[in-house]
Design a binder for these strands. Structure first.
Lengths: 207, 207
DNA sequence: TAGATTGTTAATCGATTAACAATC
DNA sequence: TAGATTGTTAATCGATTAACAATC
């Protein structure tokens, strides 16, 4: 079905998926690359290229079946299966993520939180465990992803500790770039980088 | 100094800035494009190209002065000046952002929060006002950026309302893509898109 | 059928990498 | 000076756009 799909394409897939999801929820059955392009700010050509990088779904003279394409994108991204997550750090960011409503759409589910300060509020309805019980409890939780919502200083060490426990996927909110072995994945989320870009554009417009 | 700088370059600038900042705080005085490239996972060539797109700072045979380059990047990004922000929505994401430690580095400062439910906790040390007082209070707050940490449904409407009050820069955490007039800037932050990419990579590695 | 729109190849455009003279 | 490393031009690579035959 798909050979190598470039990074540039992969980064656009979640946006396609999201948009098709909303189309489906509005009852739209069909869409052409032209209309999709207009809504998403991309050229029809690019959309057809992107979609075709993982298989042919359109019908000439008609366009794409919204639900069919959405479901397929879901499988391509792997967000059709449930991903159980543990959240490390029960500070404000950790708590915000524990309650984030964007997860169900992509099949992600927070299962538990850990924090060095065991006396914190239990947010949402997730159990909160002290960090020292990590080794003891993690195996039973059956999670495949760890969210790091902790300060930068201990981040790399905590990641290594989770790696030793078998975690191979990390979503990092600590303000450092973390490195991991080749058999694991890290997505470093740098919120302030977005602000840098925003600031640059403001300057250009003289805001 | 700089003509047109491409989007691809601009998106890398905050990472350069962040890394130079940590180098400076470690007391590093000088760095070559070779070493910078190794640390950041870029080629020396690319780094020299990027830096030269906004002016020549290196010395042959020596490299770059860390502090000088950092300070210049700061000006290029416009993060040397203070940006006052208002946070709309005092839910968990709003509260997390109110306390986010990544802002000072980029000169951003949250000033106040607004929420439809006036009875919420006052988080951090920011004043929290009811949303209906927006028109009355915003002019005195002297903010140039609004963070939207509200549900998708009212997001576009709230943005239009802020635009009418003179706000021209938006950082949007609502899970919809917002559109704005050409004299304003929006950065749409889609956290779950990152998870889509993470999920795709996990699948590829068989995690 | 005629019109619309795909899948796909070819053309263009832009970004990254390589190379090297200039020079600190 | 000799060695290192820049700034910059040229070469390569990849991604986007255009075009169009295929076909629903």
């Amino acid at each position: 079905m798909a050979g190598y799909v470039s990074d540039a394409v992969i980064r656009r897939l979640p946006a396609y998926f999201r948009y098709l999801w909303t189309l489906e929820s509005k009852g739209v059955k069909q869409i052409s690359s032209k209309d999709l392009g207009e809504s998403m700010g991309l050229t029809p050509s690019q959309i057809r290229q992107d979609i075709n990088s993982f298989g042919g779904f359109g019908r000439q003279g008609y366009g794409y079946e919204v639900t069919e394409l959405k479901n397929h994108l879901q499988k391509v991204l792997g967000v059709n299966q449930e991903h159980r997550m543990v959240i490390i750090g029960a500070g404000r960011i950790g708590q915000a993520l524990a309650a984030y409503e964007g997860f169900p759409m992509v099949g992600f589910r927070p299962i538990a939180m850990f924090d060095v300060a065991a006396g914190r509020d239990e947010p949402g309805n997730l159990p909160l465990y002290p960090m020292q019980e990590l080794e003891e409890r993690l195996p039973d939780l059956d999670v495949s992803i760890a969210i790091l919502a902790i300060p930068p200083a201990p981040a790399q060490e905590v990641m290594d500790r989770l790696y030793r426990l078998g975690i191979r996927a990390f979503w990092n909110f600590a303000t450092v770039d973390l490195k991991c072995p080749g058999d694991a994945v890290v997505v470093n989320e740098h919120l302030s980088d977005s602000l840098g870009v925003l600031s640059y554009r403001m300057q250009q417009l003289g805001i």
